[in-house]
Design a protein around this nucleic acid. Structure first.
Length: 110
DNA sequence: CGAGTGACCGCAA
DNA sequence: ATTGCGGCCACTC
């Protein structure tokens, strides 16, 4: 249960992002924190740009619920992809962090 | 190997 | 709600 992935930061990021369930979203800061560096939020974004582009990065949003700007296609595209998964959006153009934000800790408690 | 960069975050006015 | 500034850490050229 304890893989030596501690040396691979992006390995974890990609791992987590690849485990984000359908119709859910995660924040850069949270993902970074899960990797051990809560201050590496921007690095998570960087990995999204340099790392494996085959991952569902569109399920990753900012802490305030807004979408990423450097997304391939722009926020308009990022939004569409999320909406395509059933993610609810607010009238201000942000994601409903109350329903979409994924909570891995609740997956085992319900 | 060295220096710069970035799909961010938090605080203050 | 908006604007301005620093920090932080891994990745790339």
């Amino acid at each position: 249960m304890n893989q030596p992935v501690e040396d691979n930061f992006r390995q974890q990021v990609q791992q987590i992002v690849a485990h984000i369930p359908f119709g859910r979203v995660m924040t850069y800061g949270d993902i970074a924190a899960m990797c051990g560096s809560p201050r590496a939020a921007r690095i998570v974004g960087g990995i999204a740009h340099y790392g494996d582009t085959k991952l569902p990065w569109h399920r990753v949003v900012k802490k305030n619920g807004s979408l990423a700007e450097g997304y391939p296609g722009g926020i308009p595209a990022h939004e569409k992809h999320l909406r395509a998964e059933g993610v609810m959006f607010l009238p201000n153009g942000r994601v409903n962090m109350l329903e979409a934000q994924w909570r891995p800790a609740l997956e085992g408690g319900g």
